[in-house]
Nucleic acid binder design. Structure first.
Lengths: 336, 336
DNA sequence: TTGTAGGCGTTATCAG
DNA sequence: CTGATAACGCCTACAA
């Protein structure tokens, strides 16, 4: 920068002015400076810049893992919004590195990030951790809520999505259902469960008649639970399995195929999320669409708004996205 | 930090010494300082730190998009290696934000990153762009090569993988093949194509007898090309489609299903990458496994090594991963 | 073993 | 409109 100043025959301050246009500069000088910058291929040193201002033009993105396409889509949404705000994204995937979130809270705190997008999902959703994260900057949550952690949050209406998909299944005549839920501690798990139960109650079934098994949102757990559930004789085992996310539903599909069970003739299956590959299984997976990309995008937008908002002003109001059942082949009429 | 020093009754340098253990400090003082740090919940300001040293403990990761699970897996591998090296990862997904890489080269240059992992894939694989990226720090490439851009590169042996899967298809008696390739400009596209052709030549077929259509590595292009290819009458159209990645193969599968073509009875399909969901289509996709996670991990390790290596020393030797055909249901004997 | 002082590249506050 | 100058928070010779 000093070089630029010399090359243009001005002082550092003037250069700084044109860089941030934070001061009045005569056209002739401005042109000379811009020129010098190009000639010398000068790039401002961001580290110095953040030291001085307290902003980093960088936001943190904390999510469980990237291999679940749902999360990947959220990440792309965040990335897009960040790009529009000329910011960069720090990726933190605690489960991918098999360490507690603390690993990141420690690293992130010093970065003077502008803010953080937090999508809890695995084991690390405890309140204390959230608070710790919050010390690294303003936080916006996506897809999940943490009780007692009161930050702007972008979610979809899981509950009514679950209700609708369960209603669809019940309308096909199924009466012996089973639910493969997500980790109990998660808000979404609870929401989806209530949704399922509302539908079940509305059809006059006793909630206790529907077993709920806890999965971990990954394929393997779907397959394992299906194996347990479907081992019973045909006239006792469930005729429909409601899964709290698509990955577990894939696991179920996979198990059924290897066990020689036909979907949907022998057993119907539903998922949740509607990740792109859900269309591609065969039969296609009946599931509940959540606008993952839009959710990530809005969350990041919200974060930027939050950053700009003076602390006194009312916090921006986050939207609640609607969900939508996608009917495909994996649900059919109840057998018998 | 000043507060810490006061609280512990020492000077700033002493605190700095214990922080980086870069100087001898008496046990008693060290303990007092550590204590003060804990009490005050002090976190070093990374911005200041990088300004002083020239390292950021941060690496950049540039890849086309995250929704392709292959890339997501690479990203997780990188993330893991970064965590082991106590570094953070800056995520850059140019296609997700629908802008040229330049958007990032500009942003990255000022960050004084320790280095960059670069996985070209979409439109942005030109040499000039790579060089521009290299100005932001040492670069390691994964999965692709760019001619004339000579940096350490981690790849898998696409060519022999392609050869083997084609051989498998030919061994099933298929003679009317078609290839759905990736973007021509990519090194992997070229490699896979040569692999396919080697196998084809080895079976005495004339290479020109096998049409090659160029896709863009996404589902949609697979479906579109399949539609064109399979419109011909049954005894003229190809009996097997070799796709340069799994996503395009999914597109083909999808098209076949909607067009009422049975896989593999009417047409056989192969993919490339073996992303986790490839097991879940039905029939399962016969494809070529690339160790995506390991490749990302090794690339990041390599980058760290490169950073440590004095410029004079010989650059570390990158491994070439082997590929492996995964035989599943999407390939069957040739009809007739 | 500990303290002092200079500077990393910017921005912001002043006075000209 | 422009130019000096003091921080920002940390590291590292060097001196004590």
């Amino acid at each position: 920068m000093k070089d630029v100043a010399e090359h243009a025959g001005v002082t550092l301050s003037t250069v700084s002015y044109v860089l941030n246009d934070s001061g009045p500069v005569s056209e002739s000088r401005r042109a000379r400076i811009l020129d010098a910058i190009r000639v010398l291929k000068y790039t401002p040193n961001e580290s110095a810049r953040r030291l001085r201002k307290k902003a980093a033009s960088t936001i943190g993105l904390v999510l469980p893992d990237l291999t679940n396409q749902f999360f990947a889509l959220v990440a792309e949404g965040v990335e897009l919004a960040a790009a529009e705000g000329e910011a960069l994204v720090m990726l933190c995937a605690p489960e991918a590195i098999n360490r507690p979130i603390q690993h990141y809270t420690r690293l992130l705190r010093g970065q003077s990030l502008d803010g953080i997008i937090y999508l809890p999902g695995g084991a690390g959703m405890a309140l204390s951790l959230s608070l710790e994260l919050a010390e690294a900057g303003p936080v916006v949550m996506v897809d999940e809520r943490v009780r007692g952690f009161d930050v702007p949050t972008v979610v979809a209406d899981s509950r009514s999505g679950a209700r609708e998909v369960a209603t669809h299944v019940l309308a096909q005549g199924h009466r012996r259902l089973a639910i493969i839920g997500g980790p109990q501690a998660l808000w979404t798990s609870e929401q989806r469960l209530s949704g399922y139960r509302e539908a079940i109650a509305a059809h006059g079934l006793h909630p206790d008649a529907v077993p709920v098994l806890e999965g971990n949102h990954r394929e393997g757990s779907g397959a394992a639970i299906a194996a347990r559930l479907l081992a019973a004789p045909p006239d006792e085992r469930p005729t429909a399995l409601l899964c709290a996310n698509d990955l577990m539903a894939f696991g179920v599909l996979d198990y059924c195929q290897s066990a020689g069970l036909r979907v949907p003739q022998d057993v119907s299956v539903t998922g949740f999320d509607d990740i792109p590959v859900a269309r591609l299984t065969s039969p296609g997976l009946t599931t509940v669409r959540q606008p993952a990309h839009a959710m990530g995008y809005e969350a990041a937008k919200l974060l930027f708004e939050l950053i700009r908002t003076p602390a006194s002003a009312p916090p921006p109001q986050p939207p609640v996205f609607t969900t939508e059942v996608q009917v495909r082949g994996s649900v059919g009429p109840a057998p018998g």
